[in-house]
Amino acid sequence: MRRATALLGLLAALPFAAPASAQETDTPPKVALPPAEGEFRPGLGVETSHELGDPLGLPLSGEELDRAVAEVAADIRCPKCQALSIADSGAASAQAMRAEARSLLSQGYTREQVVGYFEQRYGEFVLLEPRARGLNLIVWAAPAAIVLVGGLLVALRLRQRRRSADEGLDTYLRQVEQETAT
């Protein structure tokens, strides 16, 4: 089997003691600086605008921007930490994400767009509050449902208690007799 032998070859390369050797693999042509055309800006970095669409809000600045960044950051999970938002975490990647949120918000993207961007990149996991749709509705409806059902049970109990209170003493005495008999 060719595949198996090839695999073996790769496996043999695994023990990572492999120190510096002259066999530097030069990956083929790195294209040098042609002037950007079409969708690319001349600067370095990553192109995000075609995934984000057009900014739907107004560019923010100053305190308004700070507030918006804080709001977005509180809802995004820091990818490297456990249960902390990128607002709370000091991890380098959390700082980078806050900076990204700030940059996008200052360009006029709305909070929803920025949160959506992170979700699109990292998956639903990055949202500290699950979106209220589909199966997630369980988690949104559960608290209210529990309070309602519990409240109903309490109400039923109160009604039943009031009704049985008068005749209750007799039954109670009978039960006492039964219990002491056993």
Binding site: V46, A99, E100, G123
Partner: peptide
């Protein structure tokens, strides 16, 4: 990757 923006665009956890 200045500012980690590419890592964010690729959704890199670590």
């Amino acid at each position: 990757d200045e500012g980690g923006r590419v890592a964010i665009a690729y959704g890199v956890y670590g």
